[in-house]
Design a protein around this nucleic acid. Structure first.
Lengths: 143, 143
DNA sequence: AAATAGGTGGGGAAAAGTGGGGAAAATAAA
DNA sequence: TTTATTTTCCCCACTTTTCCCCACCTATTT
């Protein structure tokens, strides 16, 4: 599954190279959507189907679950990997995540996250300082 | 399993030699990730899979579990041992752990830890002095 | 002091990432 | 329906990175 942090460039046509080792899993089809903390989530078809199922079953009586489902479902777009191993990100998603040229591709096991490099560094600085405290909270999960 | 303390040098290409006796266990694949106290953890594939499984199942709706998963999963990288018994550490991990030239490789039974030598000495000095007090606190863990 | 084994450094081939031209397809306009 | 314009995607060429391999160094053993 996906792990690691990679740095790639968006070209003028809005294409982003996917690290070689992730391509096979994504080659059967994949879905990008709006993620949390201002990044994009990229799923394999299979993982997306599971997630979409969960989202569709959220009770729509609550306004915040409606908002969340709209964000992730209406925001989604299926993408294909071209022969050079790149995906074309639609303009509205690039805008949403504030992607310019430098993009970080991060492996989060069952999804990839796409971040503007500056935002990613900022986020990392913030969370690495708190990492010991966060780790303490995770202790009860057996980690 | 892994025990002992070794001192090795990072070369200009970011490669680090692994002590001979650890190589066989790591040769089937291994994963480095961000550890606590500013060092890196190096796991065998098998050990890593156990850990990753726990991390992957954390719900992404909570911000602190997202942060932790990003730290540990996006922070991880699978590495291969080359024919000379070295691993290539990606730049972002070297930066995280402040690795310069001198690196300590320490065996912690089911993982290796990689430390900048200065930080390691500093940490050792501090904890060796406090070791008796720390030991007292360990009593209730059955040690 | 020679021999061996583990560790270190660097050159070069191969692979991965990047940028851009142009054909094909899709969409919009006439 | 035809023409024009835009978008998508395939392909080629260039650059950068990775990794394989050879050679050398250093320390330990005989």
């Amino acid at each position: 599954m996906f792990i690691g942090e990679y740095s790639h460039n968006l070209d003028e046509k809005g294409r982003l190279a996917i690290p070689k080792k992730f391509r096979l899993d994504l080659s059967k089809g994949s879905v990008v959507t709006k993620g949390l903390d201002n990044c994009l989530f990229l799923y394999t078809q299979e993982e997306w189907d599971k997630l979409a199922q969960k989202l569709a079953n959220l009770p729509f009586a609550q306004s915040n679950t409606r908002a969340f489902a709209r964000l992730m479902l209406a925001g989604a777009m299926d993408v294909l990997i071209d022969k050079q191993g790149r995906v074309m990100l639609p303009e509205y998603l690039r805008t949403f995540a504030g992607l310019k040229k430098n993009v970080v591709v991060a492996g989060l096991y069952n999804r990839l996250e796409l971040w503007d490099t500056e935002k990613w560094e900022e986020y990392k600085n913030k969370t690495e300082k708190e990492s010991n405290e966060i780790a303490e909270q995770m202790a009860d999960l057996g980690v």
